[in-house]
Nucleic acid binder design. Sequence first.
DNA 1: GATTCAAAATAAAATAATTATCATTAAGTG
DNA 2: CACTTAATGATAATTATTTTATTTTGAATC
Lengths: 153, 153
Amino acid sequence: MESRIDRIKKHLHSSSYKLTPQREATVRVLLENEEDHLSAEDVYLLVKDKSPEIGLATVYRTLELLTELKIVDKINFGDGVSRYDLRQEGAAHFHHHLVCIECGAVDEIQDDLLEDVEAIVERDWNFIIKDHRLTFHGICHRCHDKTKEETAK
Amino acid sequence: MESRIDRIKKHLHSSSYKLTPQREATVRVLLENEEDHLSAEDVYLLVKDKSPEIGLATVYRTLELLTELKIVDKINFGDGVSRYDLRQEGAAHFHHHLVCIECGAVDEIQDDLLEDVEAIVERDWNFIIKDHRLTFHGICHRCHDKTKEETAK
DNA sequence: GATTCAAAATAAAATAATTATCATTAAGTG
DNA sequence: CACTTAATGATAATTATTTTATTTTGAATC
């Protein structure tokens, strides 16, 4: 964890940004909640627990900066808020998401899966892919299993 | 075009909604600008040209209704606005998009391309896919060609 | 054709998310 | 240490969207 923060620090420095205490607190919250898909407001409330003097605007600015540096990815699942997701270290592309339309859970798929598709798109559409967003909407295994149990009764 | 409106009309009726003049005007704007990815505001302004008395809230409600009936798909490319895209008639899934990070153009891919990926996700994650969103961010063929010409000089 | 009734539309206000402004503070740098 | 710049915090402003209260519309019935 510390080493990861160190690397983020270096990443910031290499673009001549500083890892201020506020930025570090924000990054720590993201690291501690890596599984979740936090909104700016969510991050703000969590950071506030440890650093109560921080302002919401600073959180927004930090998240924007981290997005710009591709340390986090900004994503939108169709509800009105942007969510922020730490990118896996060394990952060239953004990972995929499974959004459950029953319970709202968001699971992540780290596997690439798109190599073949991207090759086709680059060749047939002459489009140079820099990044992607892939989200499946459907019923997650938990809700699915639950339905099966209900039916079995 | 008229027949397509007729089918949308029937679709609405089958869910006991009516195709009111305002809704028809909105649908016509969507049909006439099928290539584009209009925001609610865009749609509103275009509808207003022909039916100046329409209200923005009505446009929002209509777009929401059409989304619910899967006549249009609501999509978000990361700028702050939702965009609305007519679904191809008979299409089971939403088509894909190529967003150019140079010029901002949005091109569509109607081919499915995801059959294999979806099979893997359904099998390995036990997730029942109902819909998807796939967007590639990169450099479109137009910007790409332009760069090549520049270099050739 | 008049009447009734529910759905839909309008206008305006409210809400929610995000961004901009600006005075203040902190962090380097000469 | 003075000076310049960057970053922050509080708040105001903006933008997108939704809600509310009220009016209008149009089909169904008398």
